[in-house]
Structure formats: structure tokens, C-alpha cells
Write a protein that binds this DNA or RNA. Structure first.
Length: 260
DNA sequence: ATGGTTGGTAGCCAA
């Protein structure tokens, strides 16, 4: 089963690129973030025409997540548990059947950016990460294959940035952010990319500004975190870097894992 | 150190 995550930065601005990429990459499951659309505005028709089932948790203008899967699936969460007052559309979870009937639980998350540090936005990010850890811990008790996929807005380590020194004052690289991400690994989740390579220079995001992509001035902030039962089935991981060089690209590119 | 770019919405915000 191929599982992908892609912060698409506006699904309506990207629908052509999305259809093109789905046709080439052929993921069984695609988790999208920053769809920037309400549910009714999501352009489902061209995606369904490719054979995908679609579920969205949208909001007007900002945020928003979607799960696309070739097989019909059951949505199990439409928000991250732990704060009923949190109105931001940043989480959707589903159980997706595999070809052999073995299901994989997919949590699709758009973690708060948190900038600037020292504001309520950074506090919201850390509170959101605490809720994520609590939910992730609960999922482990199910002893199922679980993939927590998404834009984590966390640079885990210096080797995950071309210029780590440029990010020291940024919410994405704060010790608290990195520590909360590392805590997921300590719970028992595996960073899929790091399970297959120790290489530096593997990025999923390049800013639109100042020719960042041309300079390869990127960061790795889109991650696939695997429960032990999912990690046992991990075959390969790749970052679809070429998408960033395409027409009207998102500032993020897809990351795709193959599970046996 | 600053400014650079994009999407969605509305007369700027978030990234």
C-alpha cells in the first residue's frame, strides 16, 4: 500500500497539478494539507474520476485536510481529540482497507506553524503537539498499523535544513517543537524516512521567496510516523522532489511510503 | 538585517 502526504497549499489553485501527480504516483492513500477550502468547495469530481474516494475537513480560507483513497474507507475522527473548542481544520483520521483486507489507520495532520515564537500561536502549537502525543499514545494500544502523516511544521534535526542557522529563531526549529516531535518517536513511532536513510539534504519544503528552491535552501517538515505494526511493513520511502520544479508548484512536495 | 512570493479573501492575513 502506497501512502503519501502532501501539503498542497490551496487545492483549487493546485487541482491540475494534483490530478497530474495522482495519475503518475498512483498512491493508494493520499493525505492533503492546507486545502484552503470548505468541504463543499473541494474539487472532488476530477479526483473521483481517477477512482479515488474523498473525505475532507475544511474551513474557509485557511488550513483544511483531506484523505483520498482508492478503496472506500471509514472516517474515524474529524478533529484531533483533546480540545472541543479548537475550531481549526487540522486533523482527519480514517481506517483504509488494504488489497488483502488488512486495514491501515491513517491520521492526516496539519500541525500549527507556531510563528512567531513567544505568542499565543506558539503556545497553540505546543498544546496541539501535546494533544497529538496523547492521541498517538492511545492509538498504539490498538496494536494496529498506523500512519500519522502530515505537515508537522517541525525540522527534527540540523541535518534536515540546508541552513539550520537560519531557523534558530523560528517556531519550526525550537527545542520545544523538536522535543515534542522526538517524543512521538520515544512513544514508539518511527520516522519513515529516517528508517531508510541517514542522509542529509532531503527536504520537503522550499520557500517561494528568494529563489530558495534554485539554491536548494530547503527543510524537511513533512513526515510519515509509523506505529510498530506499520514500521514492520515499511518497504521504501521517497520524496517527490521533482514536483517542486513543475508548473505552479506548492511550496511543499509529496512524501510517499510503500508498505508491504 | 531585510525582503523576497504565493493563495484566499476582501480591502490584508497566514505561511
Amino acid at each position: 500500500m502506497r501512502v503519501a502526504s502532501w501539503n498542497i497549499n490551496g487545492v483549487k489553485a493546485r487541482i491540475e497539478a494534483l490530478v497530474d501527480w495522482l495519475g503518475r504516483a498512483q498512491p493508494d492513500v493520499a493525505c492533503l494539507q492546507e486545502i484552503k477550502s470548505v468541504d463543499e468547495g473541494f474539487p472532488a469530481a476530477p479526483i473521483e474520476a481517477l477512482g479515488y474516494n474523498v473525505a475532507t475537513v475544511g474551513q474557509k480560507g485557511f488550513n483544511g485536510v483531506a484523505i483520498l483513497a482508492k478503496r472506500p474507507f471509514e472516517v474515524t475522527e474529524r478533529a484531533l481529540p483533546g480540545d472541543p473548542d479548537d475550531a481549526q481544520a487540522r486533523y482527519i483520521e480514517a481506517v483504509v482497507p488494504g488489497e488483502d483486507g488488512r486495514a491501515v489507520r491513517i491520521g492526516n495532520l496539519y500541525l500549527p506553524n507556531g510563528n512567531p515564537i513567544g505568542t499565543d500561536k506558539f503556545a497553540y502549537k505546543l498544546a496541539w503537539m501535546a494533544r497529538l502525543a496523547a492521541h498517538a499514545r492511545g492509538l498504539l494500544a490498538l496494536e494496529e498499523p498506523v500512519v500519522l502523516a502530515g505537515d508537522y511544521n517541525v525540522i527534527p534535526e540540523p541535518r534536515d535544513a540546508k541552513r539550520p542557522e537560519a531557523w534558530v529563531g523560528d517556531a519550526l526549529f525550537q527545542p520545544e517543537s523538536r522535543g515534542a516531535f522526538a517524543a512521538l518517536a520515544h512513544l514508539g513511532y518511527t520516522d519513515a524516512l529516517r528508517a531508510v536513510t541517514d542522509a542529509a539534504g532531503l527536504y520537503t519544503f522550499w520557500d517561494y521567496q528568494a529563489g530558495a528552491f534554485q539554491k536548494d535552501d530547503g527543510i524537511r517538515i513533512d513526515h510519515l510516523m509509523l506505529s510498530p505494526q506499520a514500521a514492520d511493513r515499511l518497504v521504501s520511502v521517497r520524496i517527490d522532489r521533482a514536483v517542486r520544479a513543475g508548473d505552479k508548484p506548492s511550496d511543499h512536495v509529496p512524501i510517499i511510503a510503500e508498505l508491504a
